[in-house]
Amino acid sequence: MTIPTERYRNQKEKWPSSGKHLLACFDDETILVYQAYSPSIGLFAARNGYFGGDFSYNRMSWIKPNFLWMMYRSNWGQSSGQEIILAIRLRRTFFDSILEKAVPSTFNPEQFSSQDEWKSAVSQSEVRLQWDPDHLPNGAKDERRAIQLGLRGSTLEDYGKEEIVEIMDMSEFVVAQRENAIGERIEELITPLERPYLPSKRISSRIGIESI
């Protein structure tokens, strides 16, 4: 698994403690997002480098740049149908294009002049955006907000079949770290190396990312 990691305690000291921030593991060209699937979907994707087989392109699929949010959602890989944890490496240019198209799941009067305008944007957009409470390793809510993005239509097709650089099965890593996260060994917990991701000022302002 070629993902940079660091002790959670060391990272937490560097992260913003509150506000809307897009924490992610990224380099100059690529960014990681996470998804959790059943073995039939997850193992197929990891082996073939794209989503196929039992994966459905006819419904919205959610990606999460924040590792601990994915761990909360999947109960550290223990929830039914979410046993296989995937790290998907995307080109930052494609990821930023997703952010560009994103429409919030709830009405934002600062972005839309009316409920009808927002509903129309939701119906036409292929990318849904949600700001949810971030979570601590034990599942408790954090004051910081984390982002997740729902993809559908041609955007989901591009994501699943064309734009992925690499798909990594990190299920064994998750199992190895699970006891550190939910037990008494929090000092030993290791997570992917994440820091605030800042797209262009225009995109950041549009989707509500707060300055550091």
Rank of each mutant, 00 (worst) to 15 (best):
M1L: 12
T2F: 13
P4F: 00
T5M: 10
E6N: 12
Q11A: 12
Q11Y: 05
E13G: 07
E13R: 12
S17L: 13
S17H: 04
G19K: 06
L22S: 06
L23M: 03
A24V: 05
C25P: 00
E29W: 07
T30M: 02
I31N: 07
L32G: 00
L32W: 03
V33R: 01
Y37H: 15
L43Q: 10
F44H: 15
A45E: 02
A46V: 11
A46E: 00
G53A: 06
D54P: 02
S56Y: 14
S56M: 06
Y57D: 08
R59D: 10
M60H: 08
W62Q: 07
W62H: 07
W62R: 08
I63Q: 04
F67L: 05
F67D: 05
L68V: 08
M71L: 09
G77S: 06
G77Y: 03
S80K: 03
S80R: 06
Q82Y: 07
A87F: 01
R89I: 00
R91Y: 06
F94L: 03
F94S: 08
S97G: 04
I98W: 00
I98N: 00
L99G: 04
E100Y: 12
K101F: 07
K101A: 14
V103G: 11
P104W: 03
P104S: 06
T106V: 15
F107Y: 15
E110W: 08
Q111A: 09
Q115K: 12
Q115A: 13
W118A: 03
V122A: 10
V122L: 15
Q124P: 00
E126K: 13
E126H: 15
R128V: 15
H135S: 06
L136R: 12
P137E: 01
N138S: 12
N138G: 10
G139H: 09
A140I: 04
K141T: 10
D142L: 13
Q148M: 04
L149K: 11
L149V: 11
G150D: 02
G153F: 11
G160K: 00
K161F: 13
K161L: 15
E166S: 11
I167K: 10
M168F: 14
M168D: 10
M170R: 02
E172M: 11
E172F: 08
A176C: 08
R178K: 15
R178Y: 13
R178D: 02
E179H: 12
E179L: 14
N180L: 14
G183Y: 05
E184W: 12
R185M: 11
E187D: 10
E188L: 09
L189D: 01
I207R: 11
I207H: 07
E210D: 05
I212V: 14
